[in-house]
Amino acid sequence: MRFAYFLHLFVYVKSTELQFCETGQSEECGNDKGPNSRWSKEWSEYKSLIKNAAETYVECGHTSSGCSYCYDETIKKDLSPFADGISKETLDSAKTISRITKYQIIDGQLFRSKNCMFPFRCSGIEHFLLELVKDLPNTEFYLNTRDWPMAGRHFGSAVPVFSFSKTKDYWDVMFPAWTFWEGGPALGIYPNGLGRWDEYRKTLSSAAADNPWSRKESKVFFRGSRTSAERDPLVLISRKNGKLVDAKYTKNQAWKSSKDTLGEEPAEEVKLEEHCRFKYLFNYRGVAASFRFKHLFLCRSLVFHVGDEWLEFFYPSLVPWFHYIPVPSTADQQMIQSIINFAIHHDGIMREISENGANFIENHLTLNDISCYWKTLLLEYTKLLSFPISRDQTLIRIH
């Protein structure tokens, strides 16, 4: 999911004013057939990238037990720094991390540090571990429940710490976030978090059925707090052209004044199922990877994914230009304008990409796939432990 191969595609338009193509303007705004058309060169290159992605894409299969093959390479890559084995000394180096959580599986029973930094997050993780515990060998691992990864590569030797999200600058081993079961971000409209993934899949699939592509509003939509300035260009475009872009900032816990929402009062939060009314949905990272990403696909809308730095375990299996439209995190207003105009005037292609993304999430990101990932991860990880596991009496049993 690197963007270097397409950064050159985004160019500045000559006009200093943002100009958007609208349906019916193809001859004067965005017709990519003529050699002198405003965006003919970059639009042709976009289509080449889409064509190449479709021609080279290989669909993942499933095992006889229904486990997706899509994530095997992610597990292999995450564990590769520890290919020579994980000694007791190496593993114990993780326990120096503040408020890290230790887990053990001993004779089919699950044990954990007495105190978990975020109890609901631990509970969301333990749902899957308890399902699998009878089928797993004795093992132990350290797990980080913060949003931010903990084992930075610049600190020296690899440290095996499980985290839900990371960048290439961290050793952390990715695991499926607690939010697949519980412990998701609490918002005004979701005071108890987003809830179980399997249940919200049904909610979003129903909303998508109520809002098929042909009836979706041809508009870019985004709601979220200002956790990063990367989001500013889209919000500023919306303030200039609200007809085609509806992007506004909402409050977060750190909000104090309109300065925290780029000079305007915060907008109301919008439920994810309401996003399904729009054809084009933007996804930005938050503090780390965005919890909303997987949900947006199920609207069967076109997802624009901004930035490739932050990952969850399933991100590497999503293919840019086939499952979603990639946008660099450095994109300014002119860059974003170019790709939005392209989407507006290539409706059929965009619908196909939206279907590809939705089908991947529906077929390869079920609760069964989450359980399969945990099982494969722990089996492969445990093979690397070079010491016998002995019961840590300071841990409590989790039932």
Rank of each mutant, 00 (worst) to 15 (best):
L296K: 00
L298P: 13
I189Y: 04
K219D: 04
R277K: 15
Q334K: 15
D347G: 06
D369I: 00
Y200A: 03
A254T: 15
R38N: 07
I125H: 03
P119Y: 05
R38M: 12
C122W: 00
N363S: 15
R239F: 07
L384V: 14
K243I: 05
V13L: 11
F221T: 09
L132I: 12
L130C: 13
F297Q: 00
D147G: 05
H323R: 05
T376H: 10
P185Y: 10
E362S: 14
L49D: 04
I105D: 06
F155G: 06
N144T: 06
I340F: 11
Y46K: 03
G242Y: 02
S40K: 12
Y103H: 06
F180S: 00
T376V: 07
W43N: 10
A209R: 06
I189Q: 08
K248C: 08
L298A: 08
N52C: 08
N341A: 11
I106M: 14
T167V: 11
R215K: 15
P326R: 04
S354N: 05
G156P: 01
A54F: 08
F164H: 09
V306G: 03
H62S: 09
G307Y: 04
Q333N: 08
N341D: 14
R38F: 14
F164V: 08
L9V: 12
W178G: 02
W171V: 03
D107A: 11
P388N: 07
D198C: 11
N368L: 15
W374M: 06
W255T: 13
T90V: 14
I353G: 01
G307P: 00
R146Q: 12
L49V: 08
V245I: 13
A247F: 03
L302T: 00
H364M: 00
R292F: 03
V270Y: 04
E269S: 10
G263E: 04
